[in-house]
Simulated scan of single mutants.
Amino acid sequence: MNSTVLLTGATGFVGKAVLADLAMRGHAVRAAIRGAIPADFGAAAFTIEAIDGETDWQAVLEGVEVVIHSAARVHVMNDTEVDPLAAFRKVNVEGTLNLARQAAAAGARRFVFISSIKVNGEGTVPGRPYRADDEPAPADPYGVSKMEAEQGLRALARDTGLEVVIIRPVLVYGPGVKANFLAMMRWLGKGVPLPFGAIHNRRSLVALDNLVDLVRICTTHPAAANQTFLVSDGEDLSTTSLMRRMAKALGKPARLLPVPAALLALGATLLGRRALSQRLCGSLQVDIEKTRSLLGWTPPVSVDRALAKAARHYQEQMNK
């Protein structure tokens, strides 16, 4: 029997895909949106002016069985807030726990929280991936806020009986992806020579379709209750390998120059781009064995199929 679901962040990169999947499967979806509701929006939508500790969710939650909370104040490279941690806490901690408390009081049975791998930390030693039950080690205000939200949700679950499921994605890519992944597609699409031909790191990624599939399973699977899951495509790539396979998906040659990673890191540091260097040259792997074994889940979409889908969307947008 299909559930009535409240989805927050329904116009975001992940939220839009989750919404489409839920609607396709016949769920009654209520979408909470900050700002104006798009004219062509295909679900029951509610405008939420802000998500914080004071938001009143009562009218939206009536009859809701499952909440999928994907809305957040997201990580940004150059935060202009005077106190970034306070700004993250207002939305990601106070806003999340306020919604969960009201959901429990309204009779919802499950709360699926889209967290972040940043709760685990910023990077791994190759061959020693993060695991879901590792001690958290967030290194920035965004990661700290997500960790604190997780801790509050677990306490709330113990106190109320609300089933909490926490999902920590790694970098998510797919049609409509932004930021560094989009920039990479632009570089490769233009045939620009890039100094990334000798990077031997290992990074876990997750295709949007794979994340959406796991979210769907976590709304109903009995074994998911009160668990934390890491999610990836199940195949870790070096930056060099990723760029070669992305170029192939775009139908372009990969013009990658074999510049040593140490030299790239030094140059990035001198230019004040150390964080970008870590993403390009550092490793971040996750172990999804718990997700596989406890839920019987296997990523349904391969890396190459997902890259091809992202490439098609990018090229269609460029040709408009």
Rank of each mutant, 00 (worst) to 15 (best):
Ser3Asn: 14
Gly9Leu: 11
Leu22Ile: 04
Arg25Pro: 06
His27Met: 09
Ile33Asn: 05
Ile33Pro: 01
Pro38Arg: 15
Ala39Tyr: 00
Asp40Met: 07
Gly42Lys: 09
Ala43Gly: 03
Ala45Leu: 11
Ala45Asp: 04
Ala45Gly: 12
Thr47Pro: 04
Glu54Leu: 09
Gln58Met: 08
Ala59Lys: 08
Leu61Lys: 02
Val64Arg: 00
Val64Thr: 07
Ala71Gln: 01
Val74Ala: 15
Val76Leu: 07
Val76Gly: 03
Met77Gln: 14
Asp79His: 04
Ala105Ser: 13
Gly107Ala: 08
Ala108Lys: 06
Gly121Ala: 07
Val125His: 05
Asp133Tyr: 11
Val144Thr: 05
Ser145Asn: 09
Met147Ile: 11
Met147Arg: 15
Glu148Ile: 12
Glu148Asn: 15
Ala149Phe: 09
Arg154Asp: 09
Ala157Trp: 03
Ala157Gly: 13
Asp159Ser: 13
Asp159Met: 10
Glu163Met: 11
Ile166Met: 05
Val170Met: 06
Pro175Glu: 07
Lys178Trp: 09
Met184Ala: 15
Met184Tyr: 06
Trp187Tyr: 11
Trp187Val: 04
Gly197Glu: 12
Ala198His: 04
Ala198Asn: 10
His200Ser: 15
Asn201Thr: 08
Arg203Gln: 15
Ser204Ala: 07
Leu205Pro: 02
Val206Thr: 08
Val206Glu: 08
Ala207His: 03
Leu211Lys: 08
Leu214Ser: 10
Ile217Asp: 12
Thr220Val: 12
Pro222Gly: 07
Asn226Met: 13
Leu230Lys: 04
Val231Trp: 01
Asp233Trp: 08
Thr240Leu: 08
Lys248Val: 12
Pro258Arg: 10
Pro258Ile: 12
Pro260His: 05
Leu266Pro: 03
Leu266Ala: 14
Leu270Pro: 00
Arg273His: 02
Leu280Asn: 01
Gly282Val: 07
Ser293Asn: 12
Thr298Cys: 10
Pro300Met: 05
Val303Arg: 02
Asp304Ile: 04
Ala308Gln: 06
Ala308Cys: 05
Tyr314Gln: 04
Gln315Thr: 01
Asn319Tyr: 07
Asn319Gly: 14
